[in-house]
């Protein structure tokens, strides 16, 4: 360093030194290091988000720039039966699928947490539905639910339990239950594996202590497992609700929102209005309308469930 400093002229040397000092500053340095990641986020997340929200306030169509029209899109949406139906569908879809995913996922995690033969293989096997590309599994479900070729209907009629094939995707409520079943099938592995990870962090001696304290297995589950699992449950629940609420692929591949819009979720409706329908502004408004629900769900689970006084590192009480 000293030798290079002597070869450059003193003014440049002083400037370099100032730069060096400036770079030693923690704040400057941390901003500098965060810049690449931050610019990626800004470019690919923040910009589209803001653009989407802005478009929701315009009447932009494909091939025609729009003008600001205030809340007109939202006002018309609130008088739009299809939109209101999609909100109802989305809530039913999210609530029912989440409850089932957590019930079954927790049950599966508890089973997998026991000593079972070939544990590692069984656990890997459980993850299969999750690693198959969504669209592929959606197409498989499409066949399973097919009016003529459904394997379920076929099997039930062969067993003599059924006279006629079930019209899975032709009746509104049948279709709703069908897509929910597909979503649950796909979502269980994620929930089960996350909760299994949570279960494995619980010290076995807590169960032993509880057993000696006189707890039966149900009491051990209720007084040890549940509270200890709550923090991770909250995180997984948040993610699961977000993913289910914004689901698009499964619906689009299985029903495209039909029949009679009975399986349209807000995400599929937004896409349909915006891209095939060309109403970019209206589509953007529908997508933007999802945001309050998502924020609400996140805030609820974050503050309601996740942070516990007894946990390490939580706020002082």
């Amino acid at each position: 360093m000293a030798s290079t400093a002597t070869t450059v002229d003193p003014r440049a040397g002083a400037a370099l030194e100032r730069l060096g000092r400036w770079l030693d500053n923690r704040t400057v340095l941390s901003v500098l290091f965060m810049l690449p990641a931050a610019s990626l986020l800004l470019l690919f997340l923040t910009y589209p988000l803001i653009l989407g929200v802005w478009m929701g306030f315009t009447d932009v169509k494909i091939g025609r720039p729009g003008v600001f029209i205030g809340f007109e899109n939202y006002i018309s949406l609130f008088q739009d039966g299809v939109f209101l139906l999609s909100v109802f569908n989305t809530i039913v879809y999210t609530v029912v699928a989440t409850v089932l995913k957590f019930g079954l996922g927790l049950w599966l995690a508890l089973l997998l947490n026991h000593h079972i033969p070939l544990k590692a293989y069984v656990r890997a096997f459980v993850l299969l539905p999750y690693i198959i590309p969504t669209v592929l599994s959606a197409i498989a479900f499409w066949w399973i639910y097919d009016a003529q070729f459904s394997i379920i209907s076929w099997a039930l009629t062969q067993m003599g339990l059924l006279d006629a094939y079930i019209d899975f995707l032709g009746q509104p409520w049948n279709a709703r239950w069908s897509v929910i079943a597909a979503n649950v099938w796909r979502g269980i592995p994620f929930v089960a594996i996350c909760l299994l990870a949570g279960l494995q962090t619980i010290s076995p001696s807590l169960y032993e202590a509880a057993a000696l304290d006189g707890a039966n297995s149900w009491q051990r589950f209720w007084h040890v497992t549940v509270p200890m699992l709550m923090p991770i449950l909250a995180v997984v629940l948040t993610f699961s609700v977000l993913f289910t609420f914004t689901d698009f692929q499964l619906i689009y591949a299985i029903t495209r929102g039909g029949p009679l819009n009975s399986t349209h979720l807000m995400a599929t409706l937004a896409f349909q209005r915006a891209i095939p329908g060309g109403q970019l502004g209206e589509g953007a408004a529908i997508a933007t309308a999802m945001i309050p629900f998502l924020v609400g769900a996140t805030v609820f689970s974050y503050y309601g469930l996740q942070r516990r006084k007894w946990q390490q590192g939580s706020a002082d009480d």
Binding site: S205, H223, V224, Q311
Partner: peptide
């Protein structure tokens, strides 16, 4: 029983 790691219920 008093366990080596105490096994107190953290919650």
């Amino acid at each position: 029983m008093v366990f080596q790691n105490y096994a107190l219920y953290p919650h």
